[in-house]
Design a protein around this nucleic acid. Sequence first.
DNA 1: TTGAAAGCGATACCAG
DNA 2: CTGGTATCGCTTTCAA
Lengths: 336, 336
Amino acid sequence: MAKIHEVAKAAGVSISTVSYALSGKRTISAETRQRIEQAVRELDYRPNAGARMLAGRRTNIFALTEPFRADTHAPAHMAFVLATSIAARRFDYDILLLTEEEASAGMRRVASSGLVDGVLVLDVAPDDERVDLARRISLPSVFIGVPDDHDGLVCVDLDFEAAADLAVTRLAVLGHRSIGLVGHPPVAYEKSNFPPRVRAGFERRAAELGIAAAVALPDQAGQRGAGVRAAVRDLLEGGATALVLHCDDSAHGVVLDELAQQGRAVPGDVSIVSVGATFDTAAFHPPIDSVPLVPQASCDLAVDLAMRLVEGDVVAPGVHLIEPVFHDHGSIAPPP
Amino acid sequence: MAKIHEVAKAAGVSISTVSYALSGKRTISAETRQRIEQAVRELDYRPNAGARMLAGRRTNIFALTEPFRADTHAPAHMAFVLATSIAARRFDYDILLLTEEEASAGMRRVASSGLVDGVLVLDVAPDDERVDLARRISLPSVFIGVPDDHDGLVCVDLDFEAAADLAVTRLAVLGHRSIGLVGHPPVAYEKSNFPPRVRAGFERRAAELGIAAAVALPDQAGQRGAGVRAAVRDLLEGGATALVLHCDDSAHGVVLDELAQQGRAVPGDVSIVSVGATFDTAAFHPPIDSVPLVPQASCDLAVDLAMRLVEGDVVAPGVHLIEPVFHDHGSIAPPP
DNA sequence: TTGAAAGCGATACCAG
DNA sequence: CTGGTATCGCTTTCAA
């Protein structure tokens, strides 16, 4: 709990010199800087957060709003929270949590109390009420995800269309002429933003390449993945030699299990590519090729943009798309 | 972004009166209070967080340290984070997230920078490194969970022994004389704190009542819950007429599925009670009686204690146990 | 390259 | 019951 005053005295300089030495906002002679750094170390000095917030223009805190919705997938969500925190720490920023009701009311609160420098918006819904709020408050905000109405907002997301495109292209290059998509349950195509984008990219690219494209949106409510199993059978009977998966963790497992039960080898008989997964597709047996949604990539970019906004730099509003990357784990091959 | 000065002017009083009116630390005439409250509302005034931290003795922020361990169960963890946040808001406190490496280093950092008033420790391991840290820093801290060495620390947790005791007692009252425990995988009994406590409570109470008690700690690595299924078969063949479950979500499902396959009815042929679950056991088919671990209960108590510590009140160090509650969903009955 | 001093916006003590 | 004001610890402008 040493104060800047004590550091200054110990180093034999003024407090303003200490402040500048620490912030680096003014050139300090190497010698002086040495003495100050040593004093800081010896006293284990850390600037008082409150004083810094009051005197400076920065709080060094970002709010993270995350309404835990009923359909929120906990592991994926946790990965994003973690990634955000890691990204923020790289700029010496902390994360303040705004959950549930507070996800909206809290945005107002922290904005007018000057508790944070900006807001990171997680778990974005198509008709998210935080869209209006973000426009109303004076704080910079960055959405991790894309609401339907995002005029003037800064959003970050994986380029899901390009991801599906990439998956289809890789399969086409190997010679596949008929590909199936195992998607989320139908409801996800109304309540979420990205499933339709995957589907669109899938269908568009297939059309461009003159490839047969079939889509199955199995309901996952069935026992033991009955819906998913039926979807797989339908797609294969329809002539598909490859499957693109855009579904959750367990559905991936069910697909592999169904193929195994049918005695079809991966990738010998059927090729598989996962799109937009946040879990580790290499952990399956066999490992599955993937064009993943990488939380750290999204959150790094989001925090970068938030920092720029805090600095007062101009940031183009709109959706900042992250380029998809293909991860090869050996689950695709030419069709039999 | 109105300031206290403007509120004072608008209400025709001094700033100290405004401050006292808001904090309630001094009696204000009803009339004056009215005018101030109106001014506050009209200007949408909120005290500046930085100024408050600097001038007052409080930051109104708690740090929440949560190292996302490899074996952290995401949904349960999320429930605790959420519950902590809700509990804190009731005292007008916010939650600052300290994740991963920062879970420890961050404790030091926020302590010496005066960013928070206290630390809530989540996801506690038996040999948690944050134990030493908590003793070293000057901030109040409350552990949600119990480390092996908790001398002088304030900890909060469900009374797992009493929970198992309660489950056994209920079954004994109905006439069961042989009960089986389906537990976590063996490794959990070394790496976690509470599984042994459930086991101990289970065995002790059974011994007291002269009831046969068998324990199975199935490995969950097997395909389709093979380990859990084998455990259920063993216990029933051993004569058990009731099962106490202390295992994860999916293992619960497997137990029910195995019983169904064996053609045994619940609770007609076999009674079942879940102990220490954080998920909704009433959602199974059939619904399962439960002595749950309720995140909100733990976190409410933890925040209560943290508040008392912040206020300077004396809080008895040691483990503050939460009394278990039995939730009846109709899955227990007299033995056949 | 460095120092002195004016705030930042509340809280809470000392008066009245 | 209400007001004036010292104070919190730092950042940053103005001077040297």
